[in-house]
Structures are given as structure tokens and as C-alpha cells.
Amino acid sequence: MGCGNPYAGEVALVIDGERRVLKLTLGALAELEDAMAADSLVSLVERFETGAFTARDVARLLLAGLHAGGWRAGPDALLAAEIEGGPAEATRVAAALLRRAFALPTT
């Protein structure tokens, strides 16, 4: 996982051979809430903390973070993309996005 700028809540991920910066801005969090329908961000954070998250949770987080980072493709493009490090890396990046969105970075 590339670092991105932790002070800006950024995390990097290589998608289809290209390094992308992801972050959860207020707009990205609102997008995430819309995508989750009845669920809440608190329940999403709890699912990651307990390991009860789904692949859909990971994809939603990544897509919202990618959009805030400037990526304009939709969910189908993400689901079809080659992610360097596979599902494990995608999950680590999604968890890091949540941590960085709601906590100050430690140095």
C-alpha cells in the first residue's frame, strides 16, 4: 500500500498498473452513505473493527475514496480492475481510509 499523504487522509492503491490516491472527503462520505442505503457509517466502521465486513463494503469504500481522489469511473470499472495486491490489499486500503478519515495520523 502506498502512503499518500496521511495528513490529508490519503491512501494510495495501484489499479490497472496506475497508482491512484484515495481519500474520504465529506463529499466521499456522503457518497458512501448514499451507496449504503439504510446502513450507517458507524455500522461500517464497526464491521471493519470486528472483521465482519463484506466485499461490497470494501468496494463501496474504495469507490468513494477513488472519486474523492479524482477517479471518475463507476463501480463496474472498479469491480473489473486489476488491483495490485489483490483483495487483501484492497481490504487494507479500505481499512486505512476509514482510520485516516476519523483519526489524526501518528508520526
Rank of each mutant, 00 (worst) to 15 (best):
1 M>Y: 13
1 M>F: 14
3 C>E: 13
4 G>S: 14
5 N>Q: 11
6 P>S: 07
7 Y>S: 14
7 Y>H: 13
8 A>K: 14
10 E>G: 08
10 E>R: 05
10 E>L: 08
10 E>A: 08
12 A>D: 15
13 L>Y: 05
13 L>C: 07
13 L>T: 03
13 L>Q: 06
14 V>D: 12
15 I>D: 09
16 D>A: 07
16 D>V: 08
17 G>A: 08
19 R>A: 15
19 R>K: 14
19 R>Q: 15
22 L>H: 06
23 K>G: 04
24 L>K: 00
24 L>D: 00
24 L>M: 00
26 L>V: 12
28 A>L: 00
30 A>T: 03
30 A>V: 06
30 A>K: 06
31 E>N: 06
32 L>G: 00
33 E>K: 06
34 D>M: 05
34 D>E: 06
37 A>Q: 01
39 D>Q: 00
40 S>C: 08
41 L>P: 01
42 V>C: 04
42 V>R: 01
43 S>Y: 00
45 V>I: 07
46 E>N: 03
46 E>G: 05
47 R>D: 04
47 R>E: 04
50 T>P: 03
51 G>P: 05
51 G>A: 05
52 A>W: 05
52 A>Q: 10
52 A>P: 01
55 A>K: 01
55 A>D: 06
56 R>N: 01
56 R>C: 00
56 R>S: 03
58 V>T: 14
58 V>W: 11
59 A>Y: 02
61 L>I: 05
62 L>S: 09
62 L>I: 11
63 L>R: 11
65 G>Y: 04
67 H>R: 15
68 A>C: 07
69 G>P: 02
69 G>D: 04
70 G>L: 11
70 G>P: 11
71 W>V: 15
71 W>Q: 13
72 R>C: 11
72 R>A: 15
73 A>M: 15
73 A>K: 14
74 G>H: 09
74 G>Q: 10
75 P>T: 09
78 L>T: 13
79 L>C: 03
80 A>I: 04
83 I>K: 09
83 I>E: 14
83 I>C: 13
84 E>T: 13
86 G>I: 11
87 P>L: 11
87 P>V: 09
89 E>F: 07
89 E>D: 14
89 E>C: 13
91 T>S: 12
91 T>Y: 08
94 A>H: 12
95 A>W: 10
96 A>S: 15
98 L>F: 02
98 L>S: 06
98 L>W: 05
100 R>C: 08
101 A>M: 03
102 F>Q: 08
102 F>L: 12
102 F>D: 11
102 F>P: 08
103 A>Q: 14
103 A>M: 12
104 L>D: 15
104 L>P: 11
104 L>G: 12
105 P>E: 11
105 P>H: 08
106 T>L: 04
107 T>G: 10
